[in-house]
């Protein structure tokens, strides 16, 4: 596997940072690859957009920052406005469909959508939307294996919430499978 760059974005409180942590952990600890996770600090972490950046490689990661990500996960309109204009053509854009409205800026991207927050709310806990999203991400990309992502997620959350997070993760997987079966839209 060559170098892969992923940006996960949304607004503060959605668990974006934890998502980046889990993705990196899945790749490096459970899939045996190399992964570097960094957070965006400074002005761009304010004003509604919050981002986690993950580089995954089978070789050691020299350059720690993402330069031209191929996967962009967007969980807020602010993050969409901030990151989509600079996102590469034909990159995979994954959105939370209830929180993000897509416009012509995204017309050259492959788009997959999932109502991650709505699914989480239906489970009674909006905070697990990020785990729903990670289940989805593991299914629709080959960044990390599903088992690695599940293991990384369930070892990164409070023990008393394992049952809820497992359900959230599986719901994300399920949506991912459906999306894959339906083919890439957009």
């Amino acid at each position: 596997m060559s170098r892969k760059e992923v940006r996960l974005s949304g607004f503060g409180g959605q668990g974006i940072v934890l998502s980046g942590m889990i993705l990196g952990k899945a790749a490096s600890i459970y899939d045996g690859k190399h992964a570097t996770f960094t957070q965006s600090y400074g002005p761009e972490a304010r004003g509604g957009a919050c981002a986690a950046e993950v580089v995954i490689n089978s070789q050691p990661v020299h350059y720690p920052h993402i330069v031209d990500p191929e996967v962009l996960v967007v969980m807020s309109q602010g993050a969409y406005n901030r990151y989509v204009p600079e996102f590469r053509e034909s990159g995979l854009l994954i959105i939370d469909m209830d929180l993000v409205t897509v416009d012509e800026q995204a017309e050259n991207h492959r788009i997959l959508s999932i109502p991650a927050t709505r699914i989480a709310e239906e489970m009674g806990q909006r905070v697990v939307a990020n785990i729903v999203m990670l289940g989805f991400l593991a299914t629709v990309t080959d960044l990390v294996s599903i088992d690695a992502m599940r293991e990384a997620a369930l070892t990164s959350i409070p023990k008393r919430t394992i049952e809820l997070n497992t359900r959230a993760f599986e719901a994300g997987l399920e949506h991912g499978r459906k999306a894959m079966a339906a083919g890439v839209s957009g």
Partner: peptide, 9 residues
């Protein structure tokens, strides 16, 4: 700050 705030194995 890069190394201190970077997460890796």
């Amino acid at each position: 700050a890069e190394v201190g705030h970077m997460t890796e194995k």
